[in-house]
Nucleic acid binder design. Structure first.
Length: 764
DNA sequence: GAGCACTGC
């Protein structure tokens, strides 16, 4: 788990006599070829590199300038390029100069001149780093496009700065803000200096110098252009969130920095890594000057936050719900209005219970006391219900309490919050490679997460944070959350590496390396999917899978669907579009839906199929696409997630496009709406057999005691209540997801025949 | 009889 990549021997697993032999069911597979190290991918630099101490620049915070975020924007300046010099930008320039990062402009520029290629910036929220750093750098001499010789070709290298974001909205809104500040249009097919590229949405004007993109997007670009030739610099923002994608990006960047730059005609790539948390040792160690032949400077920049008073409990609370309610009403009675409360809870169930308690208590408040109103906020809530949590309370003299999951920690900002209550826990998804399943359980948060939650009270003024745990408990928390690459299934990450030509994935440089078990599991699954050949190298199938914006098993099903034997590609695209559009397209029916509940069930009945969830999703998608009148109303009547269905349509269009380009699809189907035609049973069989090409290992057989036992590991699984097959008995089931929460659950379940499973396994 | 949060040619 150290970030050092040159000691694979230590990570090798010792299993029996030969560590490279593993068994799946009755099959024995030799992993020797998979684990064989290739020649060291990170070239040692010549030893003339002088090591510099990393200077830490502490900075005095500029006096608070009120309303700097709200400064009127100058109108986009037509004709481009002579930016931020023109008079119209002046009020905005003043606002920019007030940002804490402005004082570091020269430091930032000079630290990347000459031979220095890497810079690490630690900037708290509100320092302005995401908007200003690219602007500081884009006029630097090293940022110009250059014509160079690569092999026998003359190519252009550099000219653009990429800045990565973990979320789409951030990439889009930051691009919008920077475009305004630079007075340049942000529109396709125009000339401009700023662009963005996220899934389903690309606005990259001609002459773009600064491009915001999601991490996944840059990874896709890396597959096509391993040297990132169009860029002079890559800025990796929010690296502290440590997504799998950002970890892979860091690894690829390290390889580029350490390489001889032949792929870039000798022109160096500058790398700026930006983090909002102070624990940067791991990052510094990772981009070790020894390895990459350049010294990494570190710059610390103060943020702009109001002070937040922190309160811990004196002793551990026995009952979180009770403590929460008491805390809410204490704040309500002691603190003046306005000032809303944001409470962090673990999940929907807890939130709904708390909401009921608050409503009961609230009803007992005397009439001369301000009212209190609770709003839930979590990801699967409808757009409308989420927006209710952002709007000020409807009635006057009312305090709003937002009961939120982790969604309010990073993804959304609730305005008006002065008080935060932190229960100290969060649900975390963890992949258990040995069992091949995920778990989703509430666990203690990390210190950095607690600090992040606290900060949510100080966005608009001084605030208070009440932690429902003791100061000792806080001190005992982990410094940071486990990075995703140590918690998630790394199937996709391993495929990306293989597709990028990394044969020996165990020696790929990573800040945190997953254990060998997980890597082996992923390699074996890729072998099962025929993404890898028996010698561990990537196959044509594997290359194609890496291009699909879906997980490898889904990609494999897409490829199989195009084979004449199954011939159901359009249907499979519809299904996968639905499956990957969000948690579940069906909203859970709640007590509040009561007057319409039967009506909703009646409408839903025409979608439910006895074959299971896959066919149900297909029916839902096809009926939705056939709907010509009001699709939103169609969803409302069935309590179907509108957002997910819209997303599903976009994914469908994207997948159809890719399949057409990859010659899996002869021609694009006619546009919607097309009349709905139910899939005949024999076609349904073909479709399910096709899904088994990706999911044969995720199957279970009905046991005499009516439980389902998995084929691969002989575990008992229960059909999840969200499945249409919940409570039904079938000979055998195939499930697309496998999660431990209260129980070992199979989700997205379909009925299959036992001999289909045998057939699918026999193909290997 | 139950669902942390993101993301992708």
């Amino acid at each position: 788990m150290t970030g050092e990549e040159n000691r694979p021997a230590k990570r090798r697993k010792t299993k029996g006599n030969n560590p490279s032999i593993v068994k799946i069911g009755d099959k024995t597979i030799d992993l020797t070829a998979y684990l064989r190290p290739q020649e060291n991918p990170v070239k040692k630099p010549p030893t003339n590199g002088v090591e510099k101490a990393s200077p830490t620049t502490e900075e005095k915070q500029e006096p608070e300038t009120k309303g700097n975020e709200k400064t009127e924007a100058g109108k986009p300046h037509k004709g481009v390029s002579k930016r931020h010099q023109n008079a119209r930008a002046t009020p905005m320039l003043r606002a920019r100069k007030a940002l804490p990062i402005w004082a570091h402009q020269e430091d930032i520029k000079s630290s990347l001149r000459k031979d220095n290629d890497i810079l690490l910036i630690v900037g708290e929220t509100g320092s302005g780093k995401s908007t200003q750093v690219p602007q500081f750098l884009c006029d630097e001499p090293w940022c110009r496009k250059k014509k160079v010789q690569v092999g026998s070709n003359t190519v252009n290298v550099g000219g653009m700065i990429a800045i990565t974001q973990p979320r789409r909205v951030a990439a889009i809104t930051l691009a919008g803000r920077v475009a305004k500040e630079m007075g340049t249009p942000l529109a396709p097919r125009q000339e401009g200096s700023v662009g963005y590229s996220v899934r389903f949405d690309h606005v990259v004007p001609k002459g773009t110098k600064i491009k915001f993109l999601t991490e996944g997007m840059l990874l896709q670009e890396l597959l096509r252009d391993p040297s990132l030739r169009q860029y002079s610099a890559i800025i990796v923002d929010e690296i502290h969130e440590r997504s799998v994608d950002v970890d892979l990006i860091a690894g690829f960047l390290k390889q580029i920095l350490a390489s001889d730059k032949a792929g870039r005609g000798g022109i160096p790539l500058k790398v700026v890594v930006m983090s909002a948390t102070a624990d940067v040792e791991k990052i510094q160690e990772f981009f070790n000057p020894q390895d990459v032949h350049s010294s990494m400077q570190l710059l610390r920049i103060k943020g702009r936050q109001f002070p937040v008073e922190i309160h811990h409990t004196d002793r551990p609370v026995p009952d979180i719900q009770e403590a929460l309610i008491k805390q809410i009403f204490d704040i309500h009675q002691q603190e003046p209005l306005p000032g809303d409360i944001l409470a962090f809870l673990t999940g929907q169930e807890e939130i709904e219970a708390a909401q009921r308690l608050i409503e009961e208590h609230s009803a007992t408040l005397p009439s001369n006391v301000p009212k209190i109103q609770a709003f839930p906020l979590y990801g699967q809530l409808s757009i409308q219900a989420q927006q209710d949590a952002f709007k000020p309370a409807k009635q006057a003299y009312t305090r709003k309490v937002v009961l939120a999951t982790n969604i309010a920690e990073t993804s959304v900002t609730v305005p008006g919050v002065r008080y935060v209550i932190d229960c100290g826990k969060a649900k975390v998804k963890q992949f258990r490679a040995r069992l091949g399943m995920e778990s989703l359980l509430a666990k203690a948060i990390s210190k950095s997460s607690a600090i992040q939650r606290t900060g949510r009270a100080g966005r608009e003024g001084p605030g208070k944070c009440y932690r429902l745990y003791t100061a000792e408990t806080y001190e005992s928390l982990q410094e940071a959350d486990l990075p995703e690459i140590l918690r998630n299934d790394i199937l996709g990450a391993v495929l990306t590496m293989k597709a990028r030509g990394i044969n020996d994935v165990l020696s790929f440089p990573l800040m945190d390396s997953p254990d060998v078990d997980s890597v082996e599991k992923a390699l074996l699954q890729l072998l099962f999917l025929e993404a890898l050949a028996s010698d561990g190298t990537i196959t044509e199938v594997g290359r194609k899978l890496a291009l699909f914006p879906v997980s490898a098993p889904y990609g494999r099903v897409l490829l199989a669907a195009a084979e004449p034997e199954y011939d159901c590609l359009l249907e499979v695209i519809d299904i996968i579009a639905c499956l990957t559009s969000g948690e579940n397209i069906f909203h859970q029916l709640q007590a509040e839906d009561e007057p319409t509940r039967d009506d909703v069930e009646e409408h839903r009945k025409e979608l439910y199929r006895r074959e299971g969830d896959i066919l149900t999703y297909l029916t839902a998608m096809q009926r939705y696409a056939a709907e010509n009148a009001d699709r939103i109303d169609w969803c409302r009547r069935r309590r179907i997630n509108v957002r997910n269905m819209k997303q599903a349509l976009s994914i469908r269009q994207q997948l159809r496009g890719i399949c057409a380009r990859e010659k899996l699809l002869a021609e694009l189907p006619p546009p919607d709406p097309q009349p709905f035609v139910p899939l005949p049973p024999e076609r349904a069989d073909a479709l399910l057999r096709c899904f088994l090409r990706g999911f044969a290992l995720r199957t279970a057989l009905l046991a005499p005691d009516s439980s389902y036992v998995t084929v691969q590991d002989r575990h008992v699984v229960a059909v999840h209540p969200s499945s249409v097959l919940h409570g039904h008995r079938r000979e055998a089931i195939m499930f697309l997801e496998h999660v431990f929460t209260q129980k070992n659950y199979a989700k997205k379940v379909s009925a299959v025949q036992a001999d289909w499973i045998v057939e699918a396994m026999g193909r290997r």
